[in-house]
């Protein structure tokens, strides 16, 4: 069940200050019901504080929160009955069993799914009698998701759900989130993985220094970079002088490790110049690919930093 106006959460001018530090400085956004809304931002951008306010752990200094069609000053017990929260740094008592943990959290809500149903949803049926301390990282994260879903919530917070997981466990988590999308649950997601944000998000907002600097669908955000195309190749060690030469072929150039990115709005012209330059300088353009800009490029152009820095 979601709000009747099709909006699950509306945040207006949300503020949270710690002395002179403006952790959240007037953040506003709207999350339509049944959508996946992703908040991106480097460390210290204010996304965790924003999330903690919306999860009910912190109290905002100013701003309005409208959740499920009701205006509240802060997230209270009544709202929490309809929230499901996967914390980034939360833990369980290591000496409890999986079933006991699910029962414990189920007891906090007036209505909850059965233990079996929760474990089925996160594929942990065979681990019901296992102690928490014996679970792998991926299994613990799945249990955390299960606990977040124990009350069959309408609004779900997933704070970096795949951080620290191996590729297989990450894929499993994506599958769980995709299932939630199919159930038309409203999800607020934070992640450090751009491909995750692109694959799962309906809307993305990018935060930096406590404010939102860009917002839209992944496609809309990528379009902010105009008609650009990215040419990537592996260069090994390369002189700064040569980078300056490359930059004259396109709109801009940057280097990250051994990878060189050349941005251009005229792909054919830039490619011809680069190939001639490669022959002349005897620099092979290894592993060269041509692609459209993605969220990482958008994030970089907006903040000057990579998301995982």
């Amino acid at each position: 069940m979601t709000a009747t106006n099709g909006i699950t959460l509306r945040v207006t001018e949300l503020k949270k200050y710690y002395g002179k530090i403006h952790a959240v400085d007037g953040v506003s956004f709207v999350i339509p019901s049944g959508s996946v809304f992703t908040i991106l931002g480097p460390n210290g951008a204010g996304k965790t504080t924003t999330l903690e306010i919306l999860e009910g752990i912190r109290v905002p200094d100013a701003g309005e929160i409208e959740v499920f069609g009701v205006r509240v000053k802060q997230i209270d017990r009544e709202v929490k009955k309809r929230l499901g929260v996967l914390l980034q740094d939360g833990n369980f008592e290591p000496y409890l069993k999986v079933k006991e943990v699910v029962k414990l959290f189920a007891s906090f809500f007036p209505a909850a799914l059965s233990v079996e149903e929760v474990l089925r949803r996160v594929a942990l049926q065979e681990k019901g009698s296992a102690y928490i301390r014996t679970l792998s990282g991926g299994q613990r994260q799945r249990l955390a998701v299960g606990v977040a879903l124990v009350n069959d919530p309408d609004l779900i917070f997933l704070d970096e759900p795949t951080t620290g997981l191996d590729p297989q466990a990450r894929r499993n988590m994506w599958s769980v989130i995709t299932n939630l999308k199919e159930q038309r649950k409203t999800i607020i997601l934070t992640t450090h993985y751009m491909e995750e944000a692109e694959a799962l998000s309906d809307y993305v907002c990018i935060m930096d220094n406590g404010v939102i600097i860009a917002e839209g669908t992944p496609r809309e955000l990528a379009a902010r970079l105009g008609q650009e195309t990215i040419i990537e190749f592996s260069a090994g060690s390369i002189d700064t002088e040569w980078l300056d030469q490359l930059s004259s072929f396109g709109k801009g150039v940057r280097k990250d490790g051994e990878i060189v990115y050349v941005e251009t709005e005229d792909l054919v012209e830039t490619m011809e110049q680069m190939l001639a330059w490669s022959r002349e300088k005897r620099i092979p353009l290894k592993n060269m690919i041509v692609r459209q800009p993605n969220l990482e490029d958008v994030f970089l152009s907006l903040t000057g930093r990579k998301l995982r820095e």
Binding site: E55, G56, I57, R77, L83, F105, F108, A144, V147, N151
Partner: peptide, 11 residues
């Protein structure tokens, strides 16, 4: 260890 945090996001 963040065990309490998990409680505080529930009712």
């Amino acid at each position: 260890k963040g065990v309490l945090r998990r409680y505080w996001v529930t009712p």
